[in-house]
């Protein structure tokens, strides 16, 4: 090989960069997030059921909250009719956080895991925990 010093150096740089996802994680334990639903309000419920199904909430809660915000702030409509016909008050602080009063063990659990920083709390006041 001609100029083998330079070419091999370049190849080593390439391999180091390309394998970064593997090398950066060597020996690091990966804890799966487990959002907790152990709150007083949820424990009192006979049937532990969120506004919509668990799968729907898991994937689409952010878009739902965004729609709620638009409905409330722009249309003045606070009534949400869920897929099962139940009615809810569209409110992050009074409806969502009423049950999920454990932001750090529920919201943050997954958001931190996937490095998402929702801007809910730019305006809303995060509930005081342990009260």
């Amino acid at each position: 090989m001609y100029d083998s010093g330079k070419i091999l150096a370049g190849l080593i740089i390439f391999i180091v960069i390309a394998t970064l996802p593997f090398t950066l994680n060597l020996g690091k334990a990966v804890a799966k997030p487990s959002p907790s639903i152990d709150t007083p309000a949820i424990n009192q419920m006979a049937k532990k059921q969120c506004v919509e199904s668990k799968d729907y909430m898991k994937t689409t809660h952010m878009q739902m909250l965004n729609n709620w915000r638009d409905e409330v702030v722009r249309e003045g409509n606070r009534l949400y009719v869920a897929a099962d016909g139940k009615e809810y008050n569209m409110s992050l602080q009074n409806t969502c956080m009423n049950c999920h009063s454990n932001k750090s063990k529920f919201c943050d659990e997954c958001h931190n895991y996937v490095a998402v920083k929702p801007y809910c709390w730019d305006c809303h006041i995060a509930p005081k925990e342990g009260v």
Binding site: N25, V30, D55, K58, T59, Q63, Y113
Partner: peptide
């Protein structure tokens, strides 16, 4: 939408 936590589990795995 997909389950992003599941996606990260696949990637980390």
């Amino acid at each position: 939408r997909v389950d992003i936590v599941g996606v990260k589990q696949v990637a980390m795995g």
